[in-house]
Design a binder for these strands. Sequence first.
RNA 1: GCCCCCAUCGUCCAGCGGCCUAGGACGUCGGCCUUUCAAGCCGGUAACACGGGUUCGAAUCCCGUUGGGGGCGCCA
Length: 480
Amino acid sequence: MSVRVRFAPSPTGYLHVGGGRTALYNWLFVRHHGGEFILRSDDTDVERSTDEFRADILDSLRWLGIDWDEGVEVGGPQGTYRQSDRFERYAEVAAGFVAAGVGYYDGATAEDLQAIRDEATASGSSPVYDGRHRLSVAEAQERIAAGSPPPIRFGISRPGTTRFDDAVRGEVVFEHANVDDFVILRSDGSPTYHLASTVDDVDYAVTHVVRGEDILSSTPKHILITEAMGVEPPIYAHLSLLHGPDGKKLSKRHGDTAIRAYRDAGFLPEAVVNFLAILGWSPGDDEEIVSLDEMVQRFELSAVSKNPAVFDTTKLEWMNGMYIREMGAEDFASQLGALVGTDLGRELSAGEIQALVDLAPLVQERAKLLTEVAPQVRFLFVDEVEYDEASWSKAMKAPAAATALRGAAVAMADVEWTHDGVEAALRAMLDELGLSASKGLQPLRVALTGSSVSPPLFESIVAVGRESTVARFEAALARL
RNA sequence: GCCCCCAUCGUCCAGCGGCCUAGGACGUCGGCCUUUCAAGCCGGUAACACGGGUUCGAAUCCCGUUGGGGGCGCCA
């Protein structure tokens, strides 16, 4: 039997890094073993689900390079793969449970439930609802006829035990005395998560359920539903959660954790995927930069870490720099060019992109984020540089600034326009004026680029061109 | 309160009874290189939560304590 996994986000928020990691692990697992990856939309909460979130989840997944064989948008034998389209099926299963005696209409009120909880707290026992307010068939019919149908609960047999072998955590055991009879069908006829998710896993023949640890304690419920449907439960694997720097479960409180935020911030999908993969899983040796192919080849659930990982982006930034350095010059230039273009409010010409291609190796080397280097190459495409004031005052306050600028303007006017030519002329000029390279070149850098941080000077000068270079030196001189 | 999960450097990961005076990566600190900033290279820093067992021998196995996390909804 082939492996079938599913990723089932509910479109009540953007795809966040934790969800992205869960999707990735599912994907790596199924690509490693061969099988089908199903993307399902767990949108039983119709109120909070939105199309914007639906779209974001798909976009983010695709951006990461995660594809699916069956499911939302791509289709498959199960229809739309949206739970909101399957409410009749869940109601039917719930009705079947009632008929079979494993489910029942319940009459407990909120106060009843609270009383049970208080009592349990007081006596130090487990706060479980055991069905003591279950309704008889007649009572249930009466309420339904009166227009206020009661919810249906799933009855847990007590005493009893549910145990299962979690693919990452090993054997996990729950005593039924600690599991309460839970609602499967709300009074409005809609299914709860436990019912819908489990029914879908059964109907879609899911073999491995890889999900977050936050639902580990709900697993007995899912196993019991599955068994009540007469089916062997899938293999479960619960991934530990991602934490914020404060050690708490990652959430909006910790800043923007949406995958899209990382895309917008200039991260490369390869880097994000690599980082997420390594957060909680190790290929086994000391390698940390791992290609997607290699991950697929080496991934296994048994090697997934059991302890929660703190989501610290410091390493992600480093990793992103590594991936930027591995990009081809053309690819890098076009992506960076697009960013500079939006900044400038116009599209870069083919010639300008070519200039970026030429400088690419130099720029890539000092990049961590695409968005961070864009401002550093902006000077190549403007007529007048805007000076960063801090850079200006620091570089220009030295008395050498004026002499260096004057000397450079002269030297550049008539020199072979190559890196070597420019460098030779400038070094000769520095010698003549008795200036050190660090003292004499900074004013030129600021005059040329507007900033004290830039790509290497000689190459930048060549890229800007003779006329514009001389003009910039003179403009700076005039401003002094 | 009850149930479940987890426990190695600041962070992520390696270690699955002897190869561990605990390894790698990021970070950090120092140095080299250097026209800025980076990158690169070299070096330093830093951890087995605690207490009992088991064993000839425990980071590794068992129990307990402590600590952290998750769950306990007609949310998912």
